[in-house]
Amino acid sequence: MEYVVNCTRKDIKNLPDNLPRNIHRLDLSFNSLGNSSFKNLELYGNDLMSLSIASNNVTIINTDILSSLTHLEELDLTGNLLDYIDDRLFLALNLRKLSGISAKMFHHSAFWKLVSLEDLSVIFEQELISVKSIPRDIFKGQLSLKFATLQNIEDIPPLDLPVQLDNLDMSGSNVFRVSPDIFMNLNNLRELNLSNSSLSSLESESFIGLSSLSDLDLSRNKIVTLPNKLFEACRYTLDYLDLKFALSDFIAL
């Protein structure tokens, strides 16, 4: 039986030390924790499996305290902007799901040790992080990653995405164009969401590596040209294609 404690929107400024020690899921979202000490998290480290500190104005997380949560599988940091994510922050964790992580700067091996990670959501702050500052090999070692959400990307950088990826969501970004090398090695990808991402240019080989793609969302874009061999790689697998509000006086080539 899971022990769940919901402390969301309680105007908490310091992490309580009087909660039951055998908590499995703890929701501290939408409070005012800021960079106050998270030391009391160590009290719940033996059983805690899921933790949300979303929207708490957190900019720094103590690595040693986070490392004490040896059973943690899910961590939600949505709505916080960390100063820096180094290569030690998640070193001792065995996370399966990491949500809403955002930082001014990422170490190139920030996620390398999360070999059991299955679901990752990263929010890039466009005003603070340029395309060139996102390390190409930031997802190296992600042998279990199946679901990835990359939000607020300013154009798609050349990233070495995991070949076993099943679902990729880049919606709501400023992608503009999709060059042939972006998805080249993602032959296991089944779902791709590029909706509402200012997409205007597609090449005939933009999706050349997506031989397993079944679900493609290109809605709410400004696509001008639609090459006639665009879907050649996935012509036998594509079941769903969303082009709603996607075409801007397009030309079929």
Rank of each mutant, 00 (worst) to 15 (best):
V4Y: 13
T8G: 12
I12S: 01
K13Q: 11
K13A: 04
K13D: 00
L15Q: 00
P16K: 03
D17K: 13
D17W: 06
P20F: 03
R21I: 13
I23V: 10
L28K: 01
L28N: 03
S29F: 00
N31Q: 04
S32N: 11
G34L: 00
S36E: 06
F38Y: 12
F38L: 08
F38Q: 01
F38S: 00
K39M: 04
K39G: 07
N40F: 02
L41R: 06
L43V: 02
Y44S: 08
Y44E: 07
G45H: 07
M49A: 14
M49R: 13
M49N: 12
I53N: 01
A54P: 04
A54G: 07
S55P: 03
N56Y: 04
V58A: 04
T59K: 12
I61D: 03
T63K: 08
D64I: 08
I65H: 05
L66C: 09
S68N: 09
T70I: 15
L72R: 10
E74G: 03
E74A: 11
L75I: 10
D76N: 15
N80A: 09
N80Q: 10
L81K: 07
L82Y: 03
Y84G: 02
D86R: 02
F90C: 01
F90P: 00
L91W: 07
L93F: 08
N94K: 13
L95F: 06
K97G: 04
G100C: 09
S102H: 01
K104S: 12
M105T: 13
F106S: 05
F106V: 04
H108C: 12
L114W: 05
V115D: 06
L117N: 04
D119F: 03
L120V: 07
V122F: 02
V122N: 02
F124T: 02
F124E: 00
I129R: 12
S130Y: 14
V131N: 14
K132G: 15
I134D: 07
I134E: 08
P135A: 13
K140T: 11
L145D: 05
F147L: 13
L150Y: 11
Q151F: 13
I153R: 04
I153W: 05
E154T: 15
E154A: 14
D155R: 15
I156M: 14
I156K: 06
L159V: 05
D160Y: 14
L161T: 01
P162W: 02
V163A: 11
Q164D: 13
D166V: 06
L168P: 03
D169T: 07
G172S: 10
G172M: 12
G172F: 10
V175L: 15
F176N: 13
V178K: 07
P180T: 10
D181K: 06
I182R: 09
M184P: 00
L189E: 05
R190T: 14
R190I: 09
E191L: 11
N193V: 12
S195R: 13
N196K: 14
S198A: 15
S198F: 14
S201T: 15
L202S: 06
L202V: 07
S204T: 14
S206G: 05
F207N: 01
I208H: 11
G209M: 08
L210H: 06
L213A: 10
D217A: 10
L218D: 11
S219D: 14
N221G: 10
I223W: 05
V224A: 08
N228Y: 03
A233C: 07
L238C: 00
L241C: 01
D242I: 08
D242G: 01
K244E: 14
A246I: 03
D249S: 09
I251T: 14
L253R: 10
